[in-house]
Design a protein around this nucleic acid. Structure first.
Lengths: 126, 126
DNA sequence: CGGCATCCAGCCGGATACTG
DNA sequence: CAGTATCCGGCTGGATGCCG
């Protein structure tokens, strides 16, 4: 019990990391971006838009984002079930920064990939 | 050999993720931020500034950032060894976005943490 | 001082199968 | 349709120890 919360660390001191670390999640950024483009989306549709995520992990990602209040989940009590996801205001407020980050990534990607290859070449010799 | 690069996925299609995913690394953001504040810093000093990172992982993080060309590593051939790290221009160009992200995190942190607790309370009952 | 090598625990995330 | 349950392999990252 009590995983490691007692390890008071910089993560407590600097709770920013606490929040940011959620994006270590492989798909969180992508989900937010897709939700931003679609406004509202159902689970399986989201599944299809991210071909290589398993429903289990996607489900977990959505839960996490929902727990943080970045997305909302609306359940229609019908058969077959229908669930809609959409960004909350907080989630929406994050979007611009993610987009800026992806734009930065696009701008610098080539350079980075190139540098990465050079670096790998130099590694081991010299 | 060949870890899983053959799994052509959305990560190839969308190379942005390729770049962004580096920040899934637990400490990358923090290292960049500290480097931004210190301009130049030595390994052990960096170690001390992030108390709960092991030297092994910090070393790995630094290598990764160096491979991507975000930081540079300058070795002085003296004893005892002296190595300095600093941001490159590319690394520097990323700083504003990280800062914006951390500012967003600071602004919304309380709300998120609160929401997280409410969410956990509601989970399990109903 | 600045690492890398080894070992190892825990978590992340994929595949598959099953349920309301 | 929208998940959850289980299993499990692989990666992450901490601790320790050694080396130039």
């Amino acid at each position: 019990m009590k995983k490691k919360e007692e390890k008071s660390s910089i993560i407590e001191i600097c709770p920013v990391r606490n929040v940011i670390s959620r994006f270590g999640n492989k798909w969180a950024f992508l989900v937010i971006l897709i939700l931003n483009e679609n406004k509202v989306i159902r689970f399986n549709e989201l599944c299809r838009q991210i071909p290589d995520v398993s429903s289990r992990v996607l489900s977990g990602t959505l839960r996490m984002l929902e727990a943080d209040g970045l997305i909302s989940r609306k359940i229609y009590p019908v058969v077959p079930p229908k669930v809609e996801y959409r960004l909350t205001e907080v989630g929406l407020s994050l979007v611009p920064f993610i987009i800026q980050l992806t734009e930065w990534a696009q701008t610098n990607m080539k350079r980075i990939v190139t540098h990465r290859k050079q670096f790998e070449s130099n590694a081991g010799m010299e």
